[in-house]
Computed example of a mutant assay.
Amino acid sequence: MQNNEVSELLNPAFCALLYSSIVDGYNSKALKKIPLYLPYILIPIILHKESRLVLPKTAASKFHLWLQNEPQIVVGLTERVNGLEPYISKSSLLLRGQGIIDLDEDFRVSLIDNKKINKMIKNAEYISEYTFAAKKLGVICGRFNCESTMLALLGIKL
C-alpha cells in the first residue's frame, strides 16, 4: 500500500466505522457486551486484505472452524495489532467523544447511537466491503462466546 492509501484507510473516522460495525455485530449475538480490547484485534483482520477475503460466507459460520480452515489468519496478526493500536485508539476516542459508544464498569463496549453510524455507512458506499466484513466478523465472534479461547486461537496474549 502506498503511504497516502494507508493514511486514508487508517483515519479515525474510517476506523470508527469498522469499530462500531464490529461492536454492533458482536453485541447482537453475544451473552455479554464486547470487551474493549477485542476491536483492537479484529480490525487488523478486516484491514488485511488476504484475511478479509477469506472470511466465512455467512455469519452463521463457526469461529474455530473458520480459523482451522484458514490458519494463515494468525500469521503476522500480533504485529498488525501492535502497529494499528494508535489508530484504533483514536477511533475509539472519536466514538466516545461523539456519544456513539460507551464503556461499562467491566470495560465492555455498548453502541449507543447506531442510527448515526448506519447513516454514515449508508452514505459511503465505497467502504461497505469493510463495514460488512467487520459486522460479520463481530457476529461470528459474538456467537463464539468464549473470549479466552478466541484469543488463544488467534495467538494473541494480553
Rank of each mutant, 00 (worst) to 15 (best):
K62P: 05
I22H: 07
A13L: 15
Y130Q: 06
S128W: 14
Y37A: 13
K90G: 11
R52T: 04
K62G: 05
S92W: 06
L77A: 02
L31I: 15
V74G: 10
D102I: 06
I121V: 12
I73H: 09
T58C: 01
Y37C: 05
G99P: 04
P12K: 09
I43P: 01
P39R: 05
D24I: 00
S110M: 02
L65G: 08
L111S: 01
F107N: 13
A13F: 13
L93I: 03
I46Q: 02
I73Q: 05
I46P: 02
K32H: 13
H64Q: 15
N123I: 09
S89T: 05
E70I: 07
N123P: 10
G83Y: 11
L17E: 03
K32P: 06
P86A: 02
P86D: 07
V81D: 01
D104P: 03
F63P: 08
K135S: 03
K135T: 07
R96L: 15
P71E: 11
A30Y: 02
L31Q: 11
K57P: 08
P56A: 10
K90E: 12
E50C: 01
K122S: 12
Q98V: 11
L95H: 07
N69H: 09
W66Y: 04
C15T: 10
Y37F: 15
I34Y: 08
K116S: 05
E105D: 13
H48C: 04
E105M: 10
N118P: 06
R108P: 06
K115T: 09
E125Y: 03
D106E: 14
Y126F: 13
K33C: 02
E70K: 12
D24Q: 04
Y37V: 15
T78R: 13
W66H: 08
L67G: 09
H64G: 03
A30W: 07
N114S: 14
F63R: 08
S51W: 00
I127F: 09
E70T: 13
P35N: 12
A13H: 09
E50L: 13
L55H: 01
S51Q: 07
I101E: 10
P71G: 07
S20V: 11
Q68K: 14
K136T: 11
F14T: 15
I112W: 00
P71M: 03
N27W: 04
Y19D: 06
V81C: 07
L55E: 03
D106H: 11
P56G: 02
R52H: 01
N82I: 03
I117T: 06
K32A: 13
K116A: 03
N27Y: 00
L94M: 14
R52M: 08
P12C: 01
L17H: 11
I100R: 03
E79H: 13
F132H: 12
N27A: 04
N123G: 04
L42K: 10
S61N: 04
L31P: 03
S92Q: 14
E50D: 15
I121H: 00
L38K: 06
I45W: 10
R96Q: 08
S89H: 12
I127T: 11
L93E: 12
N118H: 02
D106F: 13
D24F: 01
V75W: 02
S61C: 09
E129C: 04
T78L: 02
Y19C: 05
K49E: 14
I34E: 01
Y126W: 14
G83S: 14
F107G: 01
A124R: 10
E85K: 15
V23I: 12
K136L: 11
E129H: 10
A13Y: 12
Y130W: 05
